[in-house]
Design a protein around this nucleic acid. Structure first.
Lengths: 239, 239
DNA sequence: TCAAAAGTGTTCATGATACACCCATGA
DNA sequence: TCATGGGTGTATCATGAACACTTTTGA
């Protein structure tokens, strides 16, 4: 038995044969006109010049991985307080052609209304794509995207994270369409209403839709305090 | 906007300020006499000499992360074909006191009957601990263990991974006790039977318990082919 | 008054839960 | 014959799915 194999404590030797490069790559989801979208960047230099990929970068020595991801997103979108979750590490030896690099995948949910292109950045370099219409991606980014979509599908059934994709005020139908789009299912409107309202997660506002050519719908907002108190008493979603 | 922030393609500079050390740490679960256990190692050298931690090690440049984890487990337990799943990366800047090291957490499920201490390894250096009785662990290993337990609880409700902790042949009650132990709940025997049998995942053997001072129970085995065909048609657990 | 979406009511089938009960086996 | 776990039957209740129906609003 090799002692080193079980002792991660020992300091890595200078000339060792082990992985020494780690990046972050992040899938950023948005929701626009009933469609799920992702934010892609076009690489401006290097061997993948002109190709599209997920935004990413290096992790600095004095920041946690999560904070590195937040920093990247802030730089890219200009938004703080983004919903962000780590997926896992991706580490096939061939994933990056020039050297051995492990990447840590993240996915983020943003309210597109809050998003603004950062000054100094041209529209051709950063672009929203519909999830079903993404172009070919560099390296293993298609796999990371695929994993992100799967994770989002799962996550959305366990906690009300979908709200991070909607504007502050929304109708029950908008919420249902979000779930339908993410989960790729059709839902029954009356049943969805009752099911969601029963959870008591939504706060009805003293406000209705305006300028719609049909009966105006009640607007709701999501109250994270209510969610917190419910989760503390044990709580679960399922659609 | 910093170009580097969104372009993980560019080769890392030699003297850069970014993370350059990655390890693996693995929680190994076993099940013995109705109790969930984990395999811990006692560090023989370095600053944490004498203390207990999860088995771990470095990732080699020519192997995937998963394969690094399999290699570590094979070296440690002598077993191939272990059930193994990545948790996520853990990367607080302070997690390792001597330098900046990111670790990728794994958890594994092994049939304890298959396990044998590798020759040249003394019992004092590797030991099974009951999950509820683990000693203080080095670095952030308590967090990794905690995450493993949570993940196992979740995973066991979605797929029949629990079988990887049981011997080849088992009774329905043994299976139920495994679920009770992992999920920390009490279950109803008749209902558990029916629920599990309805799934048609178990293959009844032409064999019963022997040498028990009560009615001998039917022995079952788990057929991965059946599980596969069921998952392809869409299938889900819930307890 | 029509179209379109908002919103309510009701029925039916399924599955979870609780628990009473009988069966086989060794000590 | 008793203790112990193996195994079956059944009544009750909660939930999800299907769908018919009424309401409100702008065009």
């Amino acid at each position: 038995m090799n002692k080193k194999a079980i002792d991660s404590v020992s300091i890595k030797e200078m000339d060792s044969d082990v992985v020494d490069a780690v990046t972050i790559d992040c899938t950023i989801f948005g929701f626009h006109e009933g469609t799920l979208e992702v934010l892609l960047v076009q690489h401006a230099e290097g061997i993948s010049k002109g190709k599209w990929g997920l935004p990413g970068g290096w992790i600095k020595k004095n920041e946690s991985i999560d904070n590195a991801a937040y920093r990247l997103l802030r730089d890219l979108t200009g938004i703080d307080n983004i919903y962000l979750e780590q997926l896992r590490a991706f580490g096939s030896p061939e994933r990056f052609p020039l050297s051995r690099v492990i990447t840590i995948g993240y996915y983020a949910l943003i309210k597109k209304e809050d998003y603004r292109l950062t000054p100094g950045f041209t529209a051709s370099a950063v672009k929203w794509y519909k999830v079903k219409e993404v172009p070919e991606l560099i390296y293993d980014h298609a796999e990371i995207l695929e994993t992100s979509i799967k994770r989002l599908k799962r996550r959305v059934r366990q906690a009300p994270v979908g709200f991070n994709l909607l504007p502050e005020k929304f109708t029950l139908l908008q919420l249902m369409h979000l779930y339908e789009e993410i989960l790729e299912v059709e839902m029954d409107k009356p049943n969805f209403r009752r099911k969601f309202l029963r959870m008591k997660l939504l706060v009805p506002l003293n406000e209705k839709q305006t300028d719609v050519s049909h009966r105006a719908a009640q607007l709701y907002k999501f109250d994270p305090k209510i969610y917190k108190s419910l989760t503390e008493r044990g709580f679960n979603f399922e659609f």
